[in-house]
Nucleic acid binder design. Structure first.
Length: 270
DNA sequence: CTGGTCACCTGGAAGC
DNA sequence: TGCTTCCAGGTGACCA
């Protein structure tokens, strides 16, 4: 489910309802997701107001006076707002109650994470080495050109490397490369500056469009069995193996790069 | 440092 | 119908 747009839409969906409210309870229903859950969480944040929610890459940070809750949704995680007495369903691992509303984390595959951080979040090992934010000014063709210099990995794998740029997942990597007209197999260090500038623009456009598309599902974060995070853009190439390219009609191909499926048009992308 | 592979875990779909 | 196999939006650990 979650690439950067989904995480950002989640942040926007839950923030207005929760910021400024005090934690009234914490329920942990499983010992661990990707990492053990912090058993001390309730004592750390009960009674404290949520001061803000930020996103870094695909991580969410819930700020409290005493520290920060670091959340990652992994492959299958979702956050939803529910009434505090809503009975937990399968894979509802964590509830953080804020009076008459609860933030509920569901994650069937349990690749997600919830950590308690004291001190400066940006210094936490999981965040310290992350690359540039793709929607911020620092993500430019020049910057990308510099960080890819000398790299022999394929461009598709390079832009999915969170130490280069955060938040570009498997779907949007294929989509962005199609929009930029770049073959996913091209050696990252050999893509010209001009083409990387196109790629940066394509990544920004792709992510922004996906966030926009998700905006219409914001109401789904409240109650209901809605499925926030399952909105999607009309994909240009992802998942379209064997179908005609929307631009030129050539049959879309699928290859594997580092165990991940890559979709592309061999005519539009060179 | 870099790139390649594996592991973590569950569930849905496809194949037989 | 039921069993088996493959695949899935992420990413840290480990190895050469």
């Amino acid at each position: 489910m979650p690439e950067l747009p989904e995480v950002e839409v989640t942040r926007r969906g839950i923030a207005p309802a929760l910021i400024g409210r005090r934690v009234t309870g914490v329920t942990l229903r499983t010992p661990a997701l990707r990492y053990p859950l912090p058993r001390s969480l309730a004592s750390n944040i009960r009674g404290a107001p949520l001061e803000g929610i930020d996103r870094r890459g695909k991580y969410l940070l819930l700020h409290f006076a005493a520290g920060h809750v670091l959340l990652h949704l992994g492959m299958s995680g979702t956050l939803r707002l529910v009434p505090p007495d809503a009975p937990p369903g399968k894979h509802d691992h964590v509830d953080i109650a804020f009076g008459n509303i609860s933030l509920r984390m569901n994650d069937p595959r349990r690749f997600g994470a919830l950590l308690w951080i004291e001190g400066e979040p940006t210094e936490h090992p999981l965040l310290a080495s992350l690359g540039v934010e793709p929607l911020e000014r620092g993500f430019t063709g020049k910057a990308l050109h510099k960080s890819l210099h000398g790299r022999s990995a394929a461009i598709k794998q390079a832009i999915m490397d969170s130490h280069v740029v955060v938040g570009v997942g498997n779907i949007y990597a294929s989509e962005s490369l199609f929009r930029a007209g770049i073959s996913p197999r091209t050696t990252a260090g050999r893509v010209s500056l001009v083409r990387l500038e196109k790629l940066v623009t394509a990544i920004k456009e792709t992510l922004r469009a996906a966030i926009r598309a998700g905006g219409s599902t914001l109401r789904d974060f409240f109650g209901s069995d809605g499925d926030p995070g399952h909105f999607q853009l009309e994909h240009l190439v992802y998942g379209r193996e064997g179908e005609p390219c929307r631009r030129c009609g050539t049959t879309i191909r699928m290859i594997r790069q580092g165990q991940r499926a890559t979709f592309y048009c061999s005519k539009c992308q060179t």
